[in-house]
Amino acid sequence: MVVLNKIYTRTGDKGETALSNGERVPKHSLRVEAYGTVDELNATLGLARLHATDEIAARIAVIQNDLFDLGADLSRPRMVEDAEAPYPVLRIIDAQVERLETEIDAMNADLAPLRSFILPGGSALAAHLHLSRTVARRAERAAVALSAAEDANPAAVKYLNRLSDWLFVAGRVANENGAQDILWVPGASR
Results as ranks from 00 to 15, higher is better:
Glu150Lys: 07
Ile104Asp: 00
Pro88Ile: 10
Pro86Asp: 12
Ala43Ser: 14
Glu16Leu: 13
Met107Lys: 12
Val25Pro: 00
Arg24Asn: 11
Phe68Val: 06
Ser123Pro: 00
Asp54Gln: 07
Ala139Asn: 03
Ala143Leu: 05
Arg141Val: 11
Ala61Trp: 09
Arg31Ser: 03
Ala156Trp: 09
Arg49Ala: 08
Arg49Tyr: 03
Thr9Gln: 01
Val25Arg: 09
Gly36Thr: 11
Leu125Gln: 03
Ser20Gln: 11
Val3Ser: 01
Ala145Asn: 10
Thr53Phe: 03
Val185Leu: 15
Thr37Val: 11
Phe68Arg: 08
Gly15Glu: 04
Asp13Thr: 11
Pro86Gln: 11
Ala174Ile: 09
Leu90Thr: 14
Leu160Val: 10
Leu50Val: 11
Gly171Asn: 03
Gly36Asp: 13
Glu140Ala: 06
Ala106His: 12
Gly71Arg: 05
Ser75Thr: 08
Leu167Trp: 02
Met107Leu: 15
Trp166Ile: 14
Ser164Ala: 14
Ala139Pro: 05
Ser123Trp: 06
Gly71Val: 01
Val89Asp: 02
Ala152Glu: 09
Gly178Trp: 01
His128Gly: 04
Pro154Val: 00
Ile104Ser: 00
Glu23Asn: 07
Leu146Ala: 08
Asp165Pro: 06
Gln64Met: 11
Leu74Thr: 03
Ala124Pro: 02
Val144Thr: 09
Phe168Asp: 04
Gly22Tyr: 09
Ala188Arg: 15
Glu176Val: 07
Ile182Met: 15
Ala139His: 00
Ala106Val: 04
Arg115Gly: 13
Gly22Met: 02
Val97Arg: 00
Thr44Met: 12
Leu129Cys: 11
Thr44Gln: 13
Ile93Glu: 14
Arg138Met: 07
Gly122Asp: 09
Ala85Trp: 13
Pro113Met: 09
Phe168Gly: 00
Leu67Thr: 07
Leu100Trp: 13
Val38Trp: 04
Gly171Phe: 03
Asp181His: 03
Ala48Thr: 06
Asp39Ser: 05
Pro186Glu: 08
Ala57Tyr: 11
Ala18Arg: 12
Gly15His: 09
Val80Asn: 13
Pro77Lys: 09
Asp39Trp: 06
Ala148Arg: 13
Asp181Val: 04
Val135Ala: 04
Ala126Phe: 02
Pro77Trp: 10
Tyr35Val: 04
Val62Gln: 07
Gln64Gly: 05
Ala72Arg: 06
Ala83Pro: 03
Ser164Asn: 05
Gly121Leu: 06
Arg31Pro: 01
Leu41Pro: 01
Thr17Gly: 03
Ala139Thr: 00
Asp151Lys: 10
Glu150Met: 10
Ala106Cys: 00
Arg115Lys: 13
Glu150Ser: 14
Glu16Tyr: 12
Ser29Tyr: 04
Lys14Pro: 00
Leu41Ala: 04
Glu176Asn: 15
Tyr87Glu: 15
Leu146Pro: 12
Glu84Ala: 15
Gln64Arg: 12
Tyr8Gly: 06
Val169Lys: 06
Val135Tyr: 01
